[in-house]
Amino acid sequence: MTKETLIVSLKGENATDPVRALTEPRWVRWSLIGVGVLFVALFLVMPLVEVFGSALDKGLEYYLNAVTDPMALSAIKLTLISAFFSVVLNTVFGVASAWAITKFNFWGKNLLITLIDIPFSVSPVIAGLIYVLLFGLQGLWGKWFIDHNMHIIFAVPGIVLATIFVTFPFVSRELIPLMQEQGSDEEEAALVLGATGWQIFWKITLPNIQWGLLYGVILCNARAMGEFGAVSVVSGHIRGLTNTLPLHVEILYNEYNFTAAFAVASLLTFLAVVTLIAKALVGARYEKEKEVLPSSLESEPTL
């Protein structure tokens, strides 16, 4: 800064009013809010409105028919199945990996954390491709599985596997930093007092991490139900058998059955909105959990 500008800024009204000088002039604030809100409205609100608008294009009856069509119902069922397996398995994995990583020191810890993150940085198409290369007809183990009458690719197990892959790190990623922050003091105290490993986990650790865990589960579930790319590669698009909700949307859309496509899409959009609300509600409690002071001490009544 040159001498001149320094003098100018000292003389300027900002320098005389410390409160105002710590924020921007009113016109700047309103312009930035305007630009930010407009950007969000254009890119985020408009698609939301469009989905529900297009879904109800041909009236309520058409909408209800589209979402209760047998093919839609079977897609809903498959979506629920694959989300169930992904959430349960990845939650168990999330807890186990966070326990191993945060309660012990071992060689290669950072490498392990990076490896857990891999599915986030891999294109969903590649997530599907790797299972085709393993279990597909030309795949590494494909022939063995097919000879033993186990169909994985173009069948439900492949869809479940691909969904598990893309949602793999969600729970783990929330729990590792959370449990790192909380430390092991409470668990070690319980150990000294004679608690067993499982007692420590159920009575000490789990209550301490419950909101972070739920937060991870919400994210995992949303992604599992909405996954498209990975599932598309392994599904084979067999109607009524290997179609999840997002794939059903694609099929209807490609058949130029736009209103029905948006009707089914509106179910997924509704799920996304519920996810956002749940995330906001759980997120507030999760933030509290992240504070180092254990919640049990905070809520103790003062005598």
Binding site: T23, V45, R223, G226, F262
Partner: peptide, 30 residues
């Protein structure tokens, strides 16, 4: 800054994470 609807905007920012990509795809196309 503080402005009306700030919490809604904050929650909406995560919509692309929560909205299935196929839904985003057909909606943006429309």
């Amino acid at each position: 800054y503080d402005f009306y609807g700030k919490r809604v905007v904050d929650a909406l920012v995560d919509l692309p994470f929560a909205l299935p990509t196929a839904v985003a795809g057909i909606t943006l196309t429309a």
